[in-house]
Write a protein that binds this DNA or RNA. Structure first.
Length: 496
RNA sequence: GGUCGGAUGGCCGAGUGGCUAGGCAGAGGUCUGCAAAACCUCCUACAGCGGUUCGAAUCCGCUUCCGACCUCCA
């Protein structure tokens, strides 16, 4: 099936057909987390969104090199370029080595992403591992005349850059507007222009993370690492650059400026931005203090949470909105997502044991409805990764699957090809593209014990000893297993 | 204040000139020893006011409200 994928490009503010520079290869860079504290749910949403994008590109047959950095240095606290490095600050407060902080939160981040069934990126480079590349990049920008040094620090000259280039190309703003509307920040005395930003920052003696450079001992500016590392691993020009919308106006704008200034071209053809997760209508953010940790959500351990939700229910919750919309957190919305997820997950289970009946006369209506739903799975994702549309198509397929499984419809009314198409499409999208999995996979022991108990109950039931059979069913429900007697006279269980 | 983006039924959330979103909740039904699950049916909304049009949730204008960015953030 030849698919035409359209993506919304922030650069042009339109949906455009996705055409890789060098198909079947695709280069994708996504700005990763700063590892100075626990990753919160809002961060997770962004990386889950890009996981969906990564997975769909892979599904379409592209060979994707997905680079997502770890920011472990150079990210300043507070205003302007005079604050303290976030990692250093945390290290000082916790009396730990900076790299101890980095290690702890990097490991935590990886564990959380694994829990959400996100695929690891192809390369996950760190800022501290690429200091040399960053210094080289600063040199290149200085040589081209777009930066200047002041007392051991190097700044990017935005106004000079804008003489020949469009600095506001990504955020759609004019330089004059930006100049007029930038608040006066402290520490501007070294800069020539209000919008200039640091490429290299002179380290104060007490600063913990610092490196020698041609301009003295210091550390790199935050925007620099992404330019340096995308250049190194994806080249000067690649296909997709992504990140959260909050990075667009400043971080990505500066990144483009650095790339253009150093090598003459903008790094990526398509810029994709994911929207924010909100809580009671406000952005979830570390600085606002309204963020939960994934673990709190799984356990229901937060004042805003009525109960816990499984990682797959949460992933599904995110998939129910498109990545460019804000998602507002609420118990009701999570409850709805959890139920919908379970419905689709149960259908996926049934599908794997479903055998088609002997063919009877093919019913055109069933045939075309199933084929259309399979196409709609693709149509949804092809339309800028519109996962809600794809979920709708999967939901349509699940109704057919359930009808066939319950024998309320004869599965012999569709051709063998269509039956196989349904199976393949459902499995491909549920597991591989949306990245969902069954979250009630019990160990062999539990499954064995349940099987034994279910047999005992069914014996009691066969003897019309309903008191005993209902007692067993109720007892299992109390400890979290729902028994469902199905039409074939066997009994399924699901974890609730 | 500036720039940008939103406002869809009880809740979540697609859609972007005429045609059904979908889910959850709610109501009724089929099935079942009873449940549960599943399936079927019902519940038909687009912030407000103007305008364009044969026709607008969809385009244009204004108003109101909300959010993001402009300052570290995914």
């Amino acid at each position: 099936m030849e698919q035409k994928l359209f993506v919304y490009n922030t650069l042009t503010r339109k949906k455009e057909e996705f055409i890789p520079l060098d198909a079947p290869h695709v280069g994708m860079y996504v700005c990763g987390p700063t590892v100075y504290s626990d990753v919160h749910l809002g961060n997770c949403r962004t990386f889950i969104s890009f996981d969906l994008i990564f997975r769909y590109l892979l599904h379409l047959g592209y060979k994707v090199r997905y680079v997502r950095n770890i920011t472990d240095a150079g990210h300043l606290e507070g205003d302007a370029d005079e604050g303290e490095d976030k990692v250093s600050k945390k290290a000082r407060l916790s009396q730990l080595e900076p790299m101890e902080i980095v290690q702890k939160y990097t490991v935590d981040f990886h564990e959380v992403m694994k829990t959400f069934n996100a695929l690891p990126p192809s390369i996950e480079p760190t800022a501290t591992g690429h200091i040399i590349e960053q210094i080289e990049l600063v040199k290149a920008i200085l040589e081209k005349g777009y930066a200047y040094e002041v007392d051991g620090s190097v700044y990017f000259d935005v106004e000079k850059y804008n003489e020949t280039q469009d600095y506001g190309i990504l955020n759609g703003r004019k330089l004059e507007d930006m100049l007029n509307n930038t608040r006066a920040l402290g520490g501007q005395n070294e800069k020539h222009g209000k919008l200039d930003f640091a490429l290299w920052i002179k380290a104060k003696p007490e600063h913990l993370m610092k490196w020698p450079s041609p301009w003295g001992v210091g550390f790199p500016g935050w925007h620099l690492e992404c330019s340096a590392m995308s250049n190194k691993y994806l080249g000067h020009k690649f296909d997709i650059h992504g990140g959260g919308m909050d990075l667009m106006a400043t971080h990505h704008t500066n990144e483009i400026a650095q790339n253009v200034a150093s090598c003459g071209n903008s790094p990526a053809n398509y810029w994709l931005h994911t929207n924010m997760l909100t809580v009671n209508g406000q952005k979830m953010s570390k600085s606002l203090g309204n963020s939960f940790l994934p673990a709190q959500l799984f356990e229901g351990n937060h004042e805003l949470l009525k109960k816990g939700y499984s990682p797959m229910a949460v992933r599904f919750f995110f998939m129910q909105a498109s990545y460019r919309s804000t998602v507002d957190f609420s118990n009701e919305a999570l409850d709805a997502a959890e139920k919908f997820y379970k419905t689709l997950a149960e259908a996926a289970k049934k599908l794997n044991t479903l055998q088609q009946n002997t063919l009877v006369a093919v019913e055109d209506e069933a045939e075309s409805a199933i084929i259309a739903a399979c196409e709609d799975c693709y149509n949804g994702m092809n339309d800028n990764f519109n996962s809600p549309k794809t979920l709708e198509a999967l939901n349509n397929l699940s109704k057919w699957i359930n009808s066939f499984a319950n024998a309320t419809r004869n599965s012999g009314v569709v051709s063998a090809e269509t039956f196989e198409l349904m199976k393949k499409t459902y499995n491909d999208f549920f597991y591989d593209v949306l990245g969902l999995k069954q979250d009630d996979n019990e160990s062999g022991d539990t499954a064995g014990l349940l099987g034994l108990i279910v047999n005992l109950r069914n014996q009691a039931k066969a003897n019309k000893d309903y008191a005993t059979s209902d007692k067993i069913r109720e007892g299992l429900k109390q400890i979290g297993f729902q028994l469902n007697d199905n039409k074939q006279g066997t009994t399924d269980w699901i974890k609730i």
